[in-house]
């Protein structure tokens, strides 16, 4: 395995670490890992580093990147709103020029799942996408479970407090200092109709999809089949894997959970076929 830093994007303002196995298979897709929240590319509890090295050990190329304005990447002047999918596209351009892979898998955790979804939506080079604690859409059963859970657990759980949110934008700058993490607004959930259209597109392209939900989003996702019930078109889609792991978290503060998650991700990635030529 070897790793090296690369600059990419317009005027080389974006930064990432490319991990390559000793013998790379150019017919395999490479994995792109965007930031999780505002942490730099090493990821929460060094998750992205450990994942990239495990992927390399399994023969898979990966690039863990800093989105514009995070980690070691420069902000993009004038960029506003929903910002990071272009950075993933720039990463694909950079790897295309190196002929290291056949298609891409975008793998995002929480806010990174949003970036992965947006990148997958707009770029046919994406053949697979893994979303950990990505979009959640509620169902009638979700509301029933939530009511039951609140009755059962109300004595021990503090009520979630609604906090004002600031936007994660270029203008935030120093305002991020002194901001609590749960005050930072990362993205807006797409409507169910928009999500449905995107899933139709993903399925038309025969993308491999992995959805994982942990206990960190149990207030939004509270039973294993919620995604399927929210979007029945996914039922029977053979390239979709759905895992509900309530005893895990997306900050990976337990090594056991982190290692188990890496095993799940690597074993899924190596089964994703490359882009047909």
């Amino acid at each position: 395995m070897n790793e090296r830093a690369i600059s990419f994007g317009e005027s080389g303002s974006l930064f990432g670490i490319l991990s390559q196995p000793d013998v790379a298979d150019p017919l395999r897709p490479a994995v792109l890992i965007p930031n999780t929240g505002v942490s730099h590319r090493a990821g929460p509890s060094r998750m992205h580093v450990e994942l990239a090295r495990a992927l390399a050990a399994a023969g898979v190329v990966s690039l863990r990147i800093d989105n514009a304005g995070l980690g070691d990447s420069e902000p993009i002047p004038g960029r506003l709103g929903d910002p990071f999918a272009p950075d993933l596209r720039a990463a694909m351009d950079a790897l295309d020029a190196r002929n290291l892979s056949s298609g891409y898998i975008v793998l995002g955790i929480h806010s990174g799942a949003h970036d992965a979804h947006q990148a997958a939506r707009g770029d046919p080079r994406v053949v697979g996408a893994a979303f950990i604690d990505g979009y959640t859409h509620r169902t009638p059963r979700y509301w029933i479970n939530r009511t039951m859970d609140r009755l059962a657990d109300s004595a021990r759980r503090a009520n979630a407090e609604l906090r004002p949110q600031i936007g994660l934008t270029r203008q935030s700058g120093d305002a991020l200092h002194d901001a609590l993490l749960n005050e930072i607004h990362y993205y807006d959930l797409p409507t169910a109709a928009r999500m449905q259209l995107d899933l139709v597109e993903f399925m038309r392209r025969e993308m491999s999809l992995l959805y994982i939900y942990t206990g960190d989003v149990e207030n939004e996702y509270n039973y294993p089949g919620q995604l399927i019930e929210a979007f029945p078109l996914l039922r029977g889609y053979r390239r979709m894997t759905l895992r509900h792991i309530p005893e895990a978290d997306h900050r990976f503060i337990r090594r056991a959970s982190r290692e188990a998650m890496i095993d799940v991700l690597v074993s899924w990635v190596i089964r994703v076929p490359g882009q047909p030529h």
Binding site: D149, A152, D153, R156, R157, A158, G215, E218, P246, E247, A248, D249, I253, R254, A256, S257
Partner: peptide, 11 residues
């Protein structure tokens, strides 16, 4: 631990 339900506690 307080934020999570009984069934979703971390190891």
């Amino acid at each position: 631990s307080q934020q999570r339900r009984r069934r979703s506690q971390l190891p």
